[in-house]
Design a protein around this nucleic acid. Structure first.
Lengths: 144, 144
DNA sequence: GTTGGAGTTGCGAATGTTTCTCATTCTCAT
DNA sequence: ATGAGAATGAGAAACATTCGCAACTCCAAC
């Protein structure tokens, strides 16, 4: 099951370019999230002529093709991660910046309820929790 | 119970300036959300010398004093609304842009669970749902 | 009521992220 | 191999937000 030549299936007819192949690989080699700037940095070290505009264009394409998910985690910028099978949500520590992923079946229940109550067809559900992890809480206690 | 002169309580010792008074009033007169640009537009019509920087600075202060809530609703920019007693979440229609607020007790349950399971102290919980409202769904059906 | 100094303001410049433009280059069905 | 259409790199532009600083305000203390 070789994968050196391109499948062209993933990109649904969009030309498979070296840049897109590289960017998709870099995203998939990342555990967790990556933002456009960091992706650009990593891509540059493999192909120093790649442009930041291409990174953004590719991310938009991947998003449209449902290959990656885009999330805003606290800051202004966006973060990307490979599309996963199950939905999951994010818990961000304001102290150390750690991002923890978790799943909860309650989300489904909630979405179902909202759909029926408001006649909505919900296509995206993002729960963002922010706070302080155990370590950062203890640190704060100690220093104050 | 007159309120013409300033209480100075709300702003917790921060000087009460004409700009801050105006901006807070405008936010409170708004039903739902407003972004910095629109707030600036409305403020300008009352005080044409007010600066956009002041709008941003005031919003940051109000946020720190817990007078307003800041949310990102789909777009890049932030939206502000007066701090409300009960938490509520947002449901945005991708078709017409309508923003619907709703409450759900399931959120609390979910947050409690996450707190105990991950040893986190959760200080903020935002649920963002996106989809299509009944009207937009029917429109789409008709046109395709 | 005046005063002084900390805090605030307006302005324009700066930042940071994301998008656009356009000439050049690449991909892939034929 | 070829050509039409799509993608790319580079820099400019667009957008929201923040910064730096001189001038101005607020308000506690007199």
């Amino acid at each position: 099951m070789r994968n050196i030549r391109n499948s062209n299936i993933e990109l649904k007819g969009h030309p498979v370019t070296a840049q897109r192949r590289l960017l998709l690989k870099l995203i998939r080699d990342t555990r967790g999230h990556i933002d456009a700037k960091e992706l650009y940095r990593r891509a540059s070290s493999m192909d120093e002529s790649i442009s930041l505009a291409t990174v953004y264009r590719s991310l938009r394409l991947f998003k449209e093709l449902d290959l990656v998910d885009e999330r805003r985690l606290g800051q202004v910028r966006c973060y990307y991660e490979v599309k996963q099978l199950g939905e999951h949500q994010h818990l961000v520590c304001k102290g150390c910046g750690a991002v923890i992923e978790f799943k909860s079946s309650l989300i489904h229940k909630l979405v179902d309820k909202v759909q029926s109550e408001h006649g909505f067809n919900v296509t995206k559900a993002e729960l963002y929790l922010e706070g302080y992890c155990k370590e950062c809480r203890e640190e704060a206690k100690g220093s104050s």
